[in-house]
Write a protein that binds this DNA or RNA. Sequence first.
DNA 1: CCAAAAGTGTTAGAACTACACCCATGC
DNA 2: GCATGGGTGTAGTTCTAACACTTTTGG
Lengths: 203, 203
Amino acid sequence: MPAYERVLIAVDPVIFTITHDHLQVLLRQREKEPFKGKYELPGGLVQHGETAELALSRKLTEILGTQNVFFTQFHTFTAPQRDPRARTASIGFIALVSRDKIPAGEEWLSVDQLPLLAFDHKDIITKARAYLRQHLDAELLRQFLPEKFPLNNLQLVHEIIMQEKYDNRNFRKKMVAAGIVEETGESEQNVSHRPAKLYRFKS
Amino acid sequence: MPAYERVLIAVDPVIFTITHDHLQVLLRQREKEPFKGKYELPGGLVQHGETAELALSRKLTEILGTQNVFFTQFHTFTAPQRDPRARTASIGFIALVSRDKIPAGEEWLSVDQLPLLAFDHKDIITKARAYLRQHLDAELLRQFLPEKFPLNNLQLVHEIIMQEKYDNRNFRKKMVAAGIVEETGESEQNVSHRPAKLYRFKS
DNA sequence: CCAAAAGTGTTAGAACTACACCCATGC
DNA sequence: GCATGGGTGTAGTTCTAACACTTTTGG
């Protein structure tokens, strides 16, 4: 057995979205051993000649059916026994999609109520969630929302990711003052309460 | 040729220190092809049964002769041709050492004046430097300084990493008010100017 | 008119910025 | 006594945090 082992490289996307006032992760139920029946991240192996980013992009297109999904690396997992079949290093990615772009037929589980997962995928998700909290900024926020949205939705997204409540007046003032959002001039339609003005992210 | 290629996993530590008022990186001159004569990061391959962290720890002990070196992953590089000999993915780490712990016999180059480097090591260093700026906090700062230090040295370290000047009075007030440092009661010795009080990081 | 969510202003305290001179030591 | 870096206070501004009621729509 050589000291320098050749290993497989996987990419594991933690695809987040926000629905039903909760942060959700896309997971799939395994059909084969090991961990048959357990949920897992929809990852895949890096192919010959591909970068990890290209492999991930390929995977995301396959899963979500669109090219324009934000993603970024956050950590690489290398525990020798993390996959019992063969030594595999996994490059963990975060990917973010807004509710209005998620395809039908996929299973989303709330990150706060995950069952036992296959492999070390729970660790991967935990680390991804921490990354999201720590790196939350306008660039990430906009991934969760459609082009036009009420300010209160933005606040809700903030609160769900940061797990913290904000004062509504202060939040609105800050977002506008910081130049993160601007009014579109449009409003919500057909809601059974005062319609909200729609905002968009600036530049 | 199989679609799923097995690859080598390297760990490449970007070891930073601050000397001569500049951020320096530990580099070595390659003795063999490819890139013979060019400088490279002192990386190594992950061995059988090792995590990347363990491999890095082993490497750092080998290079610096001490176990207590702060390090953290920051990015994984997977371009297929990054090493012409064999496909190798490299997990980039940052490691930080204070000037008083650096061993003799190593070459340190200023990050602002690097020559052409072997492989994609320039990219790795550029990304490491950006990570350092973005994640600078008390935990990282303390790695650059000895146990006891004058406040002005702390300010200098800050300025070098952030590439920005600070007001001396404001900086001192902030560090003390934020509870990052505290006085030791000791002072510098044998300096041909007013001796500075020595501080230490709190808790 | 009721329910539901949207929207709005003020004030007190905290944090941040800008700014210039005196102090302690060695030689 | 001079050169060298160490050390200090104040005032204006900006940012943050706390707080409760009115508005607009659909049903």
